[in-house]
Nucleic acid binder design. Structure first.
Lengths: 107, 107
DNA sequence: TTTGGTTATCCGGCTATCCGAATAAGCAGA
DNA sequence: TCTGCTTATTCGGATAGCCGGATAACCAAA
């Protein structure tokens, strides 16, 4: 067998990738990488309705990608595993090189 | 502004993540990392209908994650950027550690 | 040019996801 | 406890994704 991964891990992996496949959620993750923020702050920063942001944060929370902590009236969100940003950056790096190769191939 | 990424790259990034958020497609990528294979071989390996595999390969091809090359009667598929597997493995690594932490926290 | 192995596409139908307005729920300070 | 700020959830509806059987398209060998 050439597929050594456990079924379980595979499904979790899919879950994570699915969480990452939305432009707003990616932006949220990068915003939280910059610094922890509350819902309203993120909503303003991304110019997106509060309900939308809250829903996206719920997705990220369920997948354990972000952690919430109440701070006075607000709820502060932060990255659970900052290394996930490294992974995202690596992905972008591969993407960037792929684009370069393609543009060269066109010429 | 704390979100330095270009709109464009962001959408491409989402596209890639979306391609990665299906268990069958992940299995296909790992199978191709093992060695290049044709559609029928993948279908047999994963015990999945040929049409389903072909559809998934089309998605991966559109996203430039795999490359196809005709070889006699068959079409051989291979990874365009093997480094994507490194990225996937890193993601799994973060995931594994997250699981460990959670299981410890439960105790 | 016919045959048979291989791959891509079409089809109908189901499920999942996303959206923003509206509303409910939580909580701290007066 | 009432007020007001913050966050979570509900709602209806639109869009996108996935599935596998059937069929079409491709191509090499006879």
């Amino acid at each position: 067998m050439t597929i050594p991964q456990s079924e379980e891990l595979n499904l979790l992996h899919v879950h994570i990738c699915q969480a990452l496949s939305d432009p707003t959620r990616l932006q949220i993750l990068y915003a939280l990488h910059d610094k922890p923020r509350n819902v309203t702050a993120i909503a303003k920063l991304l110019d997106t309705p509060q309900s939308t942001i809250s829903r996206h944060l719920a997705v990220l929370r369920q997948r354990s990608l972000v952690t919430s902590k109440r701070d006075g009236m607000a709820v502060n969100y932060s990255l659970s595993y900052p290394r996930i940003i490294t992974v995202l950056d690596m992905m972008r790096e591969v993407l960037r090189e792929a684009l370069e190769q393609q543009s060269q191939a066109v010429q």
